[in-house]
Design a protein around this nucleic acid. Structure first.
Lengths: 129, 129
DNA sequence: TGGAAATCTGAATACCTATTCCTATATCAT
DNA sequence: ATGATATAGGAATAGGTATTCAGATTTCCA
């Protein structure tokens, strides 16, 4: 995983317009407003994390259930507990879910309000498209 | 790509609770509200599409520039036009971007208001986390 | 304290996907 | 019409990632 480090990739193509076509002003304007490679990397890391069917289902399960332990979540989604644990580790290291220990159970939930909105919004998008 | 078809995978684990642990009521409740495998597949397809650094940068470029032709976009992001065209094809087939022909140029833009919100929201998330 | 339960961690394999090259299509200018 | 430009499409390779297995860790109960 690791937050996509392409060292200074956002500065590479100041001379990339050696190609044909291109409105130089428009490109210069767009380039000045372009997000940094580092930020783009973190954004794509986040999306890629959400872009796996297993993790997606786990997240929507957590979204509706509020909080579930690993074994309940694995039973809900229908995957082995190992897989659930592994997926949750990835999601947690990205700050998408949070864990809370209670005895020997560990309960997971969506960590961030933005992520909840993101999940809701995405579902809306598919409905209307 | 292909909208992740796992035939009726959401029904598989009615007997998955043969494992240890598990609060049966909680799991049953969560399973009843769980999104379908088909919907989860489409959602993860969408996220996976956004989860590539190149496509991410292209999308945010389009988000701010409004509309760009393939060559301007490739110059902006700093990738060959082939790659840009290929990426745009994927994004278009998923309804994320829209194309408009003007002469021999083809201008691309974000197709959907939900997607714009999604991109803005995700950026917000990273800022506050 | 000893053993069992719940979860975590690391490694290996098999699958998927991004990139690139080459070719095809469509539009414009002469 | 013909050549050139702008983009699209398909195929192959290289790289990344999900899944799974075996073992480690942490907590509870007797």
């Amino acid at each position: 995983m690791a937050a996509s480090a392409e060292p200074d990739h956002e500065v590479t193509a100041l001379d990339a317009c050696t190609e044909h076509c291109v409105n130089p002003e428009k490109v210069a304007e767009a380039r000045s407003r372009l997000i940094s490679g580092e930020e783009a990397g973190r954004l794509s890391d986040l999306f890629r994390l959400l872009g796996d069917p297993t993790r997606t289902r786990m997240l929507y399960a957590l979204l509706e259930a509020g909080e579930l332990c690993v074994c309940d979540l694995s039973a809900t989604v229908g995957i082995p507990e190992n897989s659930a644990s592994h997926a949750l580790r990835l999601l947690r290291s990205a700050g998408v879910v949070r864990k809370r220990r209670s005895g020997r159970m560990i309960y997971y939930s969506i960590d961030d309000a933005h992520v909840r909105l993101l999940l809701d919004l995405s579902r809306e998008h598919l409905k209307h498209s």
